[in-house]
Design a protein around this nucleic acid. Structure first.
Lengths: 115, 115
DNA sequence: CGGTATCCTCAATGATACTG
DNA sequence: CAGTATCATTGAGGATACCG
């Protein structure tokens, strides 16, 4: 596997590439919430603890640019924006599920229980 | 799923916890190389492109602290250190494989080929 | 309501030098 | 050989203010 470039950034393996698409602190939590329903910006913000407006916006934009979600703006007052997961996003959810299950398994193994 | 703490850091979901254990730029590449053979520090360094000495050392320490690898130091001159993957590390490899396959799939979908 | 635009901070990472 | 120690850099992310 050779090196390659995407959006001006170098990648050295497919894992790194995948994690830049759906990794980071916020992308999986966002995709997870969109997996079974369409949500508005403000709903996502209320539903995801500790996320800032800036992070929610930038992460949604990246997910949109990479084709994981679709953004639909309604021309109403006050504004209304809906985010819908795509087929590609649903495929990513399968990977998130694997990681999530693994996380739970690890936490169990390490004796961590939610407080 | 409530919040919980590990090593003094707060986590808000199992995905975040898992990614802190095996995510980041270097941990998966390291585990990947150890999956079918024991390797010395210098072998890892030669085999993983662009990793600095500092990153290799800190990431190996974290993997060791979390029980993914075992470090064995031989009291010889010059020094010799061997890193071996554990059962827990091998379980993580299964997750890495899923992510890696997904990355390859995504790259194909997005028309990215290694140069 | 759903964002932008700025400024700012700090933790992650790199570079370089040194050592048991 | 396998690291540590120190300093410099940078980019992710937070805080705040403003806007169509």
């Amino acid at each position: 596997m050779g090196d390659f470039r995407y959006n001006g950034k170098m990648y050295y393996n497919p894992v790194e590439f995948a994690m830049d698409r759906i990794g980071g602190t916020w992308k999986m939590p966002i995709l997870w919430r969109l997996k079974d329903r369409v949500m508005r910006y403000s709903e996502l913000q209320k539903d995801i603890p500790h996320i800032s407006q800036k992070m929610l916006t930038t992460q949604l934009r990246e997910l949109e640019d990479d084709g994981f979600v679709v953004r639909k703006v309604y021309a109403v007052v006050p504004p209304k924006t809906e985010y819908t997961i795509t087929e590609r996003g649903l495929r990513a959810i399968e990977v998130v599920k694997v990681i999530r299950n693994y996380g739970l398994e690890l936490m169990d193994e390490m004796g961590i229980n939610d407080k």
